[in-house]
């Protein structure tokens, strides 16, 4: 009883913090707005808020939630605290797709190259291809840790191919590629949002659906099997969820480092539980809040200049992981 009450209190607190940070993210930006802009009728304010700030803040919420939940279920699957949303090679696969598209793109029709969809589609194809290969192998290896190594190796292969492509490309496309690797939350327009949000929601729904199996997996695959959990099916659903959560968001925003690895640790510490019925919604709230905070931090420099989100998320996320390790000692 006491625990339920405490959790309810924590969730309410987190929700309030998330709402405040969300409002801040809309108000603070490279053009300073008064707080009253949120409800003002001024056309310019509306334009900035509805077509720029709001989609960006929403992207931060959706992406932060998605990569945190993806990180959480990867840590459960691999029973490894250092697993994150990208361990199966999702981000390397996506960057290979983007690299092929941007750097070897001279062979593609101009119209395709110039539309934003080309970037997204190539990232999705890259991520999905790598995940499909990992998935194919997952049926052949029994141990989750072998799968982890396979994922890392695929990431390395994709990384090498990207390096080869970079070596042979012109400076302009190289710059475009490097900018993509910085990550960006502001590239998602309302049109993109119509694709991003449903896919992420579907991924989150899937993880809610398998929360019982995820709890069983905490004890290891043998105990989970002994509790009647179908390991093969659970593993398949986990990989599909990660494809939806991490694959889709990476395609739209670029890679965002360390948030997905750090948030599950924060949530487990905060709620003092590993129960996925708590940690999944907890990761959604904490992940969204943390990425919103990171986005706020990118606005810290003077007007008209922002920092790359991928660098900020690493600056925030990596110390959190070090702090957790020191705290546990």
């Amino acid at each position: 009883m006491n625990r339920t009450y405490k959790n309810g209190l924590l969730f309410t607190g987190l929700l309030i913090v998330a709402t405040i940070v969300f409002a801040c993210d809309i108000v603070f930006g490279n053009v300073r707005l008064p707080l009253s802009a949120l409800w003002s009728d001024d056309v310019l304010y509306r334009e900035i808020i509805y077509n720029f700030r709001l989609p960006k803040a929403l992207t931060a919420v959706v992406t932060g939630a998605a990569i945190s939940v993806a990180g959480l279920i990867m840590q459960t699957l691999f029973r490894n605290p250092l697993a994150g949303p990208y361990v199966l090679g999702v981000s390397s696969g996506a960057s290979l797709g983007v690299a092929v598209y941007l750097l070897a793109g001279s062979l593609l029709p101009i119209a395709f190259v110039q539309s934003g969809w080309g970037l997204v589609i190539s990232a999705v194809i890259g991520a999905v291809l790598v995940l499909l290969m990992v998935l194919g192998i997952s049926f052949r290896v029994r141990q989750a840790v072998s799968l982890l190594i396979v994922g890392i190796m695929f990431g390395q292969i994709a990384g090498s191919l990207v390096t080869i492509l970079q070596n042979n490309s012109n400076p302009d496309s190289l710059k475009l590629f490097v900018v993509w690797t910085f990550g960006s939350l502001s590239a998602v327009s309302w049109t993109y949002m119509q694709v991003l949000v449903p896919l992420v929601v579907l991924g989150l729904f899937l993880t809610f659906f398998i929360q019982k199996s995820l709890n069983g997996l905490l004890l290891g695959e043998n105990y989970a099997r002994g509790l009647g959990i179908n390991i093969g099916r659970t593993r398949l659903l986990i990989i599909i969820s990660v494809a939806l959560l991490a694959g889709t968001t990476t395609a739209f925003t670029g890679p965002i480092a360390f948030i997905g690895m750090a948030v599950p640790h924060l949530v487990r510490g905060l709620f003092r539980t590993s129960d996925h019925r708590i940690t999944i919604p907890g990761s959604i709230l904490c992940g969204a809040t943390l990425l919103l905070l990171c986005d706020l931090a990118t606005q810290l420099p003077a007007d008209g200049y922002t920092l790359p989100i991928n660098a900020i998320s690493a600056l925030v996320g990596a110390p959190i992981i070090i702090w957790i390790i020191l705290k546990n000692k």
Partner: peptide, 26 residues
């Protein structure tokens, strides 16, 4: 097999034994 889960109480460990009898939500 070693059970090394962060933040798992004895109660929650024992409750795992009820997983075969619970619905999808656990």
């Amino acid at each position: 097999d070693n059970i090394a889960v962060e933040n798992l109480t004895i109660h929650d460990l024992v409750a795992m034994g009820r997983l075969p009898y619970t619905g999808w939500s656990g």
